[in-house]
Design a protein around this nucleic acid. Structure first.
Length: 471
RNA sequence: GAUCCCAUCGUCUAGCCUGGUCCAGGACGGCACCCUCUCAAGGUGCAGACACGGGUUCAAAUCCCGUUGGGAUCACCA
């Protein structure tokens, strides 16, 4: 086991966002690539917004995508005392001070400063007051060094330099006694020996605030890798407006977890021209050198394409296993599925080329699942005409008299009929398709018959004939 | 407004570090054709980008500077 220790640290305030999964994925990939440890830490210090359900949803999402963690979930709520101790330690060492400015005062001063066109950072008013035992509500602020620069050697963006004068004395302990995010993160990353902090680049501006804290606390400063954001089609941060952003929503929409992961890994990382990666290949090739430094637009079309690739290349049995819960959810139980000769697995080959998601699959499977199907009226009107009746009739009679129902036999029967009647294949196949499936679009006609079985095939052709007679 | 980040086809990207092999390659999407019992899948082809302006250099997508444009962050949220 290497010294690489990384963490994914979501705050449980809602669902697991697609961007969060990507962050988790890159952490996981780096850990697995380097034989390190991947830690799940829950940042739930905001008691108002954090919920247990959200924690469960995060874990469910990670399990679904296969991102397994080695340690945790560690909850910050269980470590509040620790943060308090570390903060007071800083105070005792003169590196932090009590601030009695109220939130309202601070807000007012920020507005005034902004109105004057000045920096809105904290003015350091309480820094030299030397309050040792506050008698009114007070927050503890960290005295940020104001000289020199803080340099971040980012693994993705390179060197980022911040003048320390732009940094203000951040609050590390709120007046209610709870640690703030920037403080608890540093304490945790330090104490957990995190070697690489891999997070969204919306955190770059937090980094120069955190580095001096590591140093003041005497904790090792990790390396940083700031991942570019995922944007919506309008180039703003991905949000609900852009469609589904919860991972589990993609599960429900019929995406395969490995396809989602594959799409996500290519969003910001590349390995030459390769598009499809097995998990093993991702782990093997992952590196920060090929992580893009600019933001990427989430493209649902390409996700669909990737999903389709997986649907087409997986073992039929595995696709069937993934599909079954969706059929079940659509109300097609065991008994219904048994209507198809060969069962659910028989659906895979004919439908996989025509489906991008498992939901598409269900849609395409309907005619073969139901006992009596719905007829698309427009299709019937167009294709089931009186002129075709003799052909359909004859074909049904031939099939009925023929004990063998194999594709080859069926093909021979239909071709013989077409030649005798001097018809075009399309002239017969299309009415047949409509009679058999109620639709103008389906897998090949012989595959359709195989999925229906002999009885339903005959029965539907007869019904089709009835219908054609009325046209 | 301040700070920081970013900039190759509509989108994801290769190439950039280590200038020439790039009149810029692949993929999604689009279009056309082929295949064909429909729809797909598959095959073939087409359109489509180095944001702009200056340098440096024999030579720049690649290095430097500036401009413009986009994004993120500026809380006793995380």
């Amino acid at each position: 086991m290497s010294n690489v220790r990384v963490r994914f640290a979501p705050s449980p305030t809602g669902f697991l966002h697609i961007g969060g999964v990507r962050t988790a994925l890159f952490n996981w990939l780096f850990a697995r690539h380097s034989g390190g440890t991947f830690i799940l830490r829950i940042e739930d210090t905001d008691k108002e917004r954090s919920t247990d359900e959200a924690i469960q949803v995060i874990m469910d999402g990670m399990k679904w995508t296969g991102l397994d963690w080695d340690e945790g979930p560690i909850r910050q709520i269980d470590r509040l005392e620790l943060y308090r101790e570390k903060a007071m330690d800083l105070f005792k060492r003169g590196l932090a001070y009590w601030c009695v400015c109220t939130p309202e005062e601070l807000e007012t001063r920020r507005k005034e400063a902004q109105a004057r066109g000045e920096s809105i950072k904290y003015d350091g008013r309480c820094r030299n007051r030397g309050i040792s035992e506050p008698t009114e509500p007070a927050a503890l602020r960290f005295s940020v060094p104001q000289e020199g620069q803080t340099v971040v050697q980012d693994l993705i963006k390179g060197e980022i330099v911040f003048e320390n004068t732009v940094l203000d004395d951040l609050i590390i302990l709120r007046s209610n006694g709870y640690a703030t995010y920037n403080f608890s993160v540093v304490v945790d990353d330090g104490l957990m020996n995190i070697s690489h902090v891999i997070r969204g680049d919306d955190h770059v501006n937090n980094t120069p605030r955190q580095i001096p804290l590591f140093e003041a606390l005497g904790l090792p400063v990790p390396q940083f890798a700031h991942l570019p954001m995922i944007l919506g089609a309008d180039k703003t941060r991905l949000s609900k407006r852009h469609g589904a952003t919860s991972v589990l929503a993609y599960k429900e929409m019929g995406y395969l977890p490995e396809a989602l992961v594959n799409y996500l890994v290519r969003l910001g990382w590349s390995h030459g021209d390769q598009e499809i990666f097995s998990i093993k290949e991702m782990v093997e090739h992952f590196d920060f050198k090929h992580v893009q430094s600019s933001a990427a637009v989430f493209n649902p079309e390409k996700l669909k394409w990737v999903n389709a690739q997986y649907l087409r290349n997986k073992e039929p049995q595995e696709v069937a296993e993934a599909l079954t819960p969706f059929l079940e959810a659509a109300g097609y139980d065991d008994a219904v599925r048994a209507r198809i000769p060969g069962g659910v697995e028989a659906l895979i080959s004919p439908l996989r080329e025509r489906s991008e998601t498992l939901l598409d699959f269900v849609e395409g499977a309907v005619p073969y699942l139901v006992e009596s199907m719905e007829m698309d009226e427009a299709a019937a009107t167009k294709h089931l005409k009186a002129a075709i009746v003799p052909s359909l009739q004859e074909f049904a009679d031939l099939v009925e008299a023929e004990p063998d129902f194999s594709k080859e036999t069926l093909e021979g029967l239909l071709h013989g009929l077409i030649e005798r009647k001097e018809l075009k294949m399309g002239k017969v196949a299309q009415p047949l398709r409509v009679a058999l499936t109620g639709r103008t679009v389906s897998p090949g006609i012989y595959e359709v018959m195989a999925l229906l079985g002999k009885d339903r095939t005959l029965q539907r052709i007869r019904v089709g004939v009835e219908r054609a007679l009325k046209n």
